[in-house]
Structures are given as C-alpha cells and as structure tokens.
Simulated assay, not measured.
Amino acid sequence: MSSYSHSSFAERTEIHYLPVSGYSLNTIVKRLSYLRSTIGRDISRNRLTSIDYSPLIAKGR
C-alpha cells in the first residue's frame, strides 16, 4: 500500500506567495520536496482566478 501526505497550510501559503516573489515552479518543488505534478495539480485545483492560487480554498478541500 502506498502512503501519501497532504500539504500543510503553511506549505500551501508558500505555494501562494513564492511565485509572487519571483520563484519558479521548479524552485517551489525543490523547497517543499513534492513532485512537480503534485504542486501543479494543487495550483490548478485551488485557483480563485486563472492566475491566483488560494491556500484557503486548498485547506477546505
């Protein structure tokens, strides 16, 4: 059986603020130690608009 973990609210907050600060997706992936596809899916699922990721929406899911 495989195991997985959910990202914490603090990690999701980083996913929100790091791109605004100029960090690339690859840098975020390395910093948080998640797969690129995991971060990408989380960003796509939890956007308020086409460009704005929301950690509050992500927390509620």
Rank of each mutant, 00 (worst) to 15 (best):
D42Y: 05
I51M: 07
S54E: 05
R47A: 03
M1R: 12
L32K: 01
Y23H: 05
F9K: 08
N46S: 13
S33Q: 13
T49F: 00
T27W: 05
Y53Q: 00
I39F: 03
G22S: 01
H16N: 10
L18E: 05
M1Q: 12
G60C: 09
S2G: 15
S3T: 08
L32I: 03
T38Y: 12
D52H: 08
S50G: 06
I51C: 07
K59D: 10
V29M: 06
I43V: 15
L48Q: 13
S7D: 11
G60W: 08
D42C: 09
G22C: 02
K30M: 03
I28A: 03
S44Y: 04
S50W: 10
S7Y: 14
V29K: 10
N46P: 09
R31Q: 02
I28M: 07
E14N: 10
E11Y: 08
R12L: 07
L25S: 07
N46D: 07
G22M: 04
Y53A: 00
R61E: 03
S37T: 01
A58M: 02
I28S: 04
M1P: 10
A10H: 05
M1Y: 14
H16W: 11
R41Q: 11
S44R: 11
E14I: 15
R45F: 11
R41V: 00
M1I: 09
N46R: 09
R47G: 03
S5Q: 13
M1C: 09
S5Y: 07
S5G: 12
E14A: 14
A10G: 09
S7E: 13
P55D: 06
S33E: 11
E11W: 10
G22F: 03
G40S: 12
E14S: 14
R45P: 01
T38V: 08
S3H: 14
E14T: 11
S24H: 05
D42Q: 11
R47K: 14
Y34R: 15
L35K: 11
S44G: 01
L56P: 00
D52P: 00
G60R: 12
Y53L: 03
D52E: 14
R45N: 12
S37A: 02
I15F: 05
L25D: 05
R61K: 10
F9M: 06
I28F: 10
T38P: 01
A10Y: 03
R47N: 03
E11L: 09
V20S: 09
P19H: 00
P19A: 02
S44P: 00
Y53I: 02
G40C: 04
H6P: 08
K59H: 15
Y17H: 13
Y4Q: 15
R45K: 13
V20W: 04
R36K: 12
S8Q: 03
S7G: 15
I43A: 06
D42I: 06
G60E: 10
Y23N: 04
M1H: 12
S8I: 04
R61T: 02
Y34D: 00
V20P: 03
S50P: 12
S33T: 02
H6T: 14
H16Q: 13
R61G: 07
Y34G: 00
D52L: 13
S7V: 09
Y17R: 14
S21Y: 03
Y23F: 13
P55T: 04
K59V: 09
S50R: 13
S54A: 11
I43Y: 10
S2P: 15
A10C: 07
S2F: 11
S37W: 05
P19E: 01
T38W: 05
V29L: 07
I51T: 15
